[in-house]
Design a protein around this nucleic acid. Structure first.
Length: 201
DNA sequence: CGTCGGATTATCT
DNA sequence: GATAATCCGACGT
């Protein structure tokens, strides 16, 4: 069930960004397990992607996480408020990553409701990368964690979306990346209510 | 329903 | 000192 480390060493981040749709992201914090089905992702294409923190091979204290072998988490603070969770993929020194933008609550919904202070029936509880991370209790202490470990991991529950159900479009909030902002590297499940807006191409 | 702008801080220049 | 892979409450329609 738990995805092996070898899963993340695939060097095709565009494939993995789509393949992660339907996989289930778990966290365990102080004995509290929460999990959500991944329904929206974005691919960040390493050193060649102007929207990537590792564009041009940039290495800083923050981006060093991205240069790990695939299968670790990359969590950073955005706009001073929001924690964004990424899956580092590919091999060591090839800094590809997949941003998890939305999840569908799957386990521990009551805990998510407390963390988000809203009912799980509301799509906003885990729609958008900042909200999804908060629902799962992810903060910067989850940076550089082994995704085959016991604090945060991803399982395959055989949830499969037909290719017709997987939509693609430009990534969100990356206008600064110029021509790379137009690349259709955002993937989401058609019609799923937890997908963040805009949920059309 | 849609649009607008303030929040809040690690990180980089 | 400026920026940022965003969110949410306030307001107008």
């Amino acid at each position: 069930m738990k995805l092996p480390l070898s899963y993340y060493s695939n060097q095709d981040v565009l494939f993995l960004a789509q393949d992660l749709l339907g996989k289930v992201l778990f966290t365990e914090i102080d004995g509290n397990v929460t999990a959500g089905i991944i329904v929206e992702t974005e691919a960040y294409f390493g050193v060649k992607d102007k929207a990537s923190h590792a564009y041009g091979g940039r290495r800083t204290d923050r981006t060093e996480t991205l240069y790990n072998h695939g299968g670790v988490s990359y969590v950073y603070l955005c706009y001073g408020i929001h924690h964004l969770f990424n899956v580092v993929t590919s091999v060591k020194d090839d800094p590809h990553a997949v941003l998890v933008r939305a999840i569908e609550p799957f386990m521990g919904k009551e805990i998510m409701e407390l963390r988000r202070n809203m009912p799980a029936s509301k799509a906003a509880i885990s729609s958008g990368p900042g909200s999804a991370a908060k629902a799962l209790g992810i903060d910067r202490s989850f940076n550089k964690k082994d995704l085959a470990g016991t604090e945060i991991w991803i399982e395959d529950h055989g949830i499969f979306y037909h290719p017709d159900e997987i939509m693609e479009g430009p990534r969100i909030g990356v206008a600064y990346a110029q021509e790379d902002a137009l690349l259709p590297w955002r993937f989401f499940v058609k019609g799923n209510k937890y997908v963040s807006k805009p949920n059309k191409i």
